[in-house]
């Protein structure tokens, strides 16, 4: 039986700011169902199913290994290039598919938004969790890769670095994801901006090459504004031969927090009008 505590709600012209965490927690099951639905739908009617989650980073790694690792001899912080690239790409794919899906999510769910109320943040959040699921699938390849190339993995470090790297990736995806989701409702231009942005960002993020390759310090610092820099660097920490640059890490972490706060704040600011616009 439900507790008989007095339920009270006031509907006012403008919703207050803040995360409204209580409400999100109350709707945690919906969270789960949305994520579960997206995963299910994503792989239904595909012949290879979950294999796609593994194939994507694998093929990209193969491509970049041939192109960059072999032919251009890109340095990779003392790690074998395939391990270097795969570890980066695994996280990168959370970010890229996360912001793409989150950015589109409010539009694809417009029919629901117009008819049912629930905390709107659930929509971009759950579409990011779908990308996390793909990441877990790709771990199935990452572990054998580590065993094959045998980089020196500091296990104690891995225990905290890997989860932190993934967490940083999710936070790095969440901020821009929410921002793009809200902007996309208001300005449909972002439908075209997002895929372009994702492609460009891959080449300015030290995922497929190390940041040390860039000569000028100031360019390195600008590149570190990308919140994914710290996420990838922390994830590689247990097996990287060189320590990452502390200044660059801090720049990236601060940028991550700023994007996160700004993205969620903007989303919360416009969410009450989504139903009128979508």
């Amino acid at each position: 039986m439900e507790s008989q505590r007095e339920y009270f709600l006031e509907i006012k012209p403008k919703n207050s700011f803040g995360l409204n965490l209580d409400e999100l927690i109350e709707h945690r099951e919906l969270f789960y169902f949305f994520t579960w639905r997206d995963i299910k739908v994503k792989y239904k009617q595909t012949m290879l199913g979950f294999l796609w989650a593994v194939l994507q980073p694998l093929l990209l790694t193969a491509l970049f290994t041939l192109l960059l690792g072999r032919n251009l001899n890109i340095p990779s912080e003392g790690i074998d290039y395939p391990v270097f690239a795969f570890s980066g790409l695994m996280l990168w794919l959370i970010f890229s598919s996360g912001i793409t899906n989150a950015g589109q999510s409010m539009i694809t769910q417009a029919a629901v938004i117009r008819k049912i109320y629930f905390p709107r943040l659930i929509i971009p959040l759950s579409s990011i969790l779908v990308s996390l699921f793909d990441f877990l699938m790709s771990l199935v390849v990452f572990i054998p890769l580590l065993i094959y190339y045998q980089p020196e993995v500091e296990l104690m470090r891995a225990l905290w670095c890997w989860p932190s790297g993934v967490l940083l990736t999710i936070l790095a995806t969440l901020g821009p994801g929410c921002l793009l989701a809200a902007l996309n409702v208001k300005f449909r231009d972002f439908r075209y901006v997002i895929p372009f942005l994702v492609q460009v960002l891959l080449f300015v993020t030290p995922v497929i090459y190390p940041v040390s390759m860039i000569g000028q310090r100031w360019i390195q610092e600008i590149m570190a504004l990308n919140p994914m820099y710290a996420a990838v660097a922390v994830f590689r920490l247990p097996f990287a031969a060189t320590e990452p640059d502390a200044t660059l890490l801090i720049i990236s972490l601060v940028s991550n927090v700023i994007f996160l706060v700004a993205g969620i704040a903007y989303f919360r600011k416009v969410e009450s009008f989504f139903a009128d616009l979508a």
Partner: peptide, 9 residues
């Protein structure tokens, strides 16, 4: 609560 009112509560 799908859309907020402009005035009132």
């Amino acid at each position: 609560r799908i859309t907020p009112p402009t005035r009132g509560r």
